[in-house]
Design a protein around this nucleic acid. Structure first.
Length: 314
DNA sequence: TTGTGTTTTATTGCCTCC
DNA sequence: GGAGGCAATAAAACACAA
């Protein structure tokens, strides 16, 4: 049985001359006191805690943990009394803990020799030292997890903020594109019966935002709308000049620097290359993603847009 | 003093390694 | 198969407010 292991059952012994270190096989179903070895008259039976109190249960004035226990007097009487005390768990002294902490900082794993040495130095059972290290490792791990969690959380928060602002910017640019598209379309319509030199004034006079979401798919079109949208910082930017607005297979479209207004050249181009009859439907930027498994574990990130490389599970 | 929450010490059961 | 590590848990010790 795996749970059956060698467990110390020592008494208030510091590893000195009257060595009360006694090991026994502890098993839940068998009273501890039935298992003991050694013939020391000081054997403490079922005591499983190392005491730093005297046998009457009163706290000693911080016994030095390296003190020899040989000097104990009236051991037999006190031991007798001690035997009839209810079993109690006792904390290590501040000195002992400090010593152990120091040792833990040096190396958080405990080789057998070091364990024995520490136990000797501290007047503890080796098993106690091992348990202390084990518990200390568990505490350290918990702290580490909290730290890692905090770091991940703040990293996630900043990424999400970035993502949100990009989303906003995308929306803004999208509406800008629509606006400019409207202008272009209106201009095209008026092109036939208007003097080109007057076009800018006419454009300025146009009512805005009243036209359907249509985009010219003209390959020669270098309108500012496209160059605005296809910013290299944009998540939709495609290296090599391929626009998300392009038709599949179209490789001739080249990104241009920002042109916030229509120039004379553009007007000329537009007059040379009238808009084709086919309409381009502006691609939806959001809500085109599959529904996430759950909202709570998902934080609103699109499934296909896991650019952060991990799923936030918390 | 007492109730309650937290920390510390110790046990148990399972797992891995040698 | 034994030793040792770890997670889960129990329980004593401790802190602290009411």
């Amino acid at each position: 049985m795996a749970g059956r292991r060698l467990v110390y059952s020592g008494g208030a012994d510091g590893g000195g001359g009257s060595n009360m270190n006694t090991f026994l096989l502890q098993n839940q179903r068998v009273p501890e006191s039935l298992f003991f070895s050694g013939s020391s008259p000081s054997f403490l039976g079922s005591r499983s805690m190392v005491s730093f109190e005297d046998f009457n249960g009163c706290k000693r004035p911080e016994r030095q943990f390296f003190q020899s226990f040989d000097q104990e007097e009236n051991v037999d009487e006190e031991y007798d009394e001690y035997l009839h005390q209810p079993e109690k768990k006792r904390r290590l002294s501040a000195d002992q803990v400090q010593f152990l902490e120091k040792s833990f900082v040096e190396e958080n794993k405990l080789e057998p020799e070091r364990k024995v040495q520490l136990a000797k130095d501290l007047g503890l059972q080796p098993r106690q030292v091992a348990i202390w290290f084990q518990n200390r490792r568990a505490r350290w791990k918990t702290k580490q997890l909290e730290k890692d969690y905090g770091a991940l959380e703040s990293s996630y928060n900043s990424l999400k903020a970035d993502y949100d602002s990009l989303l906003k910017e995308t929306e803004k640019l999208k509406s800008e594109v629509l606006l400019l598209t409207d202008k272009v379309l209106l201009k095209q319509k008026q092109k036939g019966n208007m003097d080109p030199s007057d076009s800018n004034q006419q454009l300025l006079a146009q009512p805005q935002g009243s036209v359907d979401s249509v985009m010219p798919s003209n390959q020669e079109d270098h309108s500012s709308a496209k160059s605005d949208v296809l910013d290299s910082d944009s998540p939709h930017y495609i290296e090599g000049g391929h626009s998300p607005l392009q038709e599949p297979g179209d490789s001739s479209y080249v990104l241009e620097p920002d042109q916030s207004d229509l120039s004379q050249d553009e007007e000329d181009n537009l007059s040379k290359n009238p808009l084709p009859s086919t309409e381009y439907v502006f691609p939806k930027v959001e809500h085109d993603y599959p529904t996430p498994p759950t909202n709570s574990s998902y934080f609103g990130f699109p499934v296909e847009d896991q650019t952060f490389g991990f799923w936030p599970y918390y």
